[in-house]
Design a protein around this nucleic acid. Sequence first.
DNA 1: CACAATCTGAACTTGCCGGTTCAATTTTCC
DNA 2: GGAAAATTGAACCGGCAAGTTCAGATTGTG
Lengths: 219, 219
Amino acid sequence: MNTATSSAAPGQHVPRGRIDKRQAILDAAFTVFARHGFALACVQEIATEAGVAKPTVYNHLHDKETLFRHAMEAAANRAMAENLAVVDQLTDHGADVRAALDEVGYQLLQRHCDDRSWALRRLLNAEVNRFPDLIDIAHATGANRITQALADRVARLTLAGHLAATEPVEAAEQFLALLTGPMESRARLGTRPVPDRELRAVARAAVRTFLRAYGEGRA
Amino acid sequence: MNTATSSAAPGQHVPRGRIDKRQAILDAAFTVFARHGFALACVQEIATEAGVAKPTVYNHLHDKETLFRHAMEAAANRAMAENLAVVDQLTDHGADVRAALDEVGYQLLQRHCDDRSWALRRLLNAEVNRFPDLIDIAHATGANRITQALADRVARLTLAGHLAATEPVEAAEQFLALLTGPMESRARLGTRPVPDRELRAVARAAVRTFLRAYGEGRA
DNA sequence: CACAATCTGAACTTGCCGGTTCAATTTTCC
DNA sequence: GGAAAATTGAACCGGCAAGTTCAGATTGTG
């Protein structure tokens, strides 16, 4: 396979040959699946969106199901990486815990309210009956991973005397719940863009009650 | 030919005439839609599930879309009523706030983890693109309604000196978030039955941090 | 320039389902 | 008992999309 030649996107013009068609197909597949759902998404539309002919799609990914699986997995991995990067920011700040949590909470909410994030969760919900294994993969590489990473940070903050979290994983779970819970009703399942001001406000509220419950002054 | 008296299930003799076919059709529709999603659910299967012929379905509800809408609306109303009944239990108990919140939280989680509740949320997520108005209706008669009812109870408890919630709606939102948030990862979108013990534990944890943040001792 | 592999556009087969029609039967109501 | 309304089974139409096939265009390589 000569997919090697300049896989790093030399520019814009799509060279009619075989370059990184595969990635383009996966991206287009996620977009179209997000638009119509699995059942009504036709492969022709995916091919068109990717600037590719239909047989080419079937050449790279044998059928619609594997196409869906690979597209979902790629999207989940990307979202997970972004969220982990945000959580890792909680390492340095040791002084002002509230400010650090505010910022991390805000950025987590930004990722949470991204169009592709909403689409990913929507598709997981929608097709859980047809692809039961996908939810295991997504939760393992998704929610659980982030909860654990956040629990690590909480444990460090607790040892440093900045928090009083006796159960780091429980505290992490509840912090995430306080962040994402109030968004469900505001974002209308992703159909309504939430202004940054509102994200900041929700993050502040979440951090406020989190610190009231797990703040330094608590036993 | 007549499908003959008592073709099946001697328990409840099916009165072949027009009785409450409509309700049977709506129930069957929700079941089948939950099973296959809107796109792949065929009306023939709904008719069979309801013990009815296909033209009868189209006789009561003109097409597949209105059938879906009515089925979803009925399911949402039922779920809302059940949740409101639970929240209303928070009226009498004035003494032991923690015990009352524990019980209400547990029962709310039970409703939240019901199969039909999960199916309802799944379908809302899945078909939000095709039925954008459904989410408004569901949220208005669902989440918002319950949040407001709970906020009412919180306000009463605050005035009675049992809580220190300066913002009742925010407190209610966060209480619900603390309850339902940790369930997402545990219930696998409803594909995994969560034992009662776990529901109790999650409710206790939610009430614990809620009372730490909004308990009587707080300002 | 020629060879091999791939990509492309289009047409085709196959299967499924929404929605309708219709004659025969059943139920309800008077 | 009898008429009106509803139900039933079955067949039919129309449309849509998955997946395949095929000849011809394009690309990379020696």
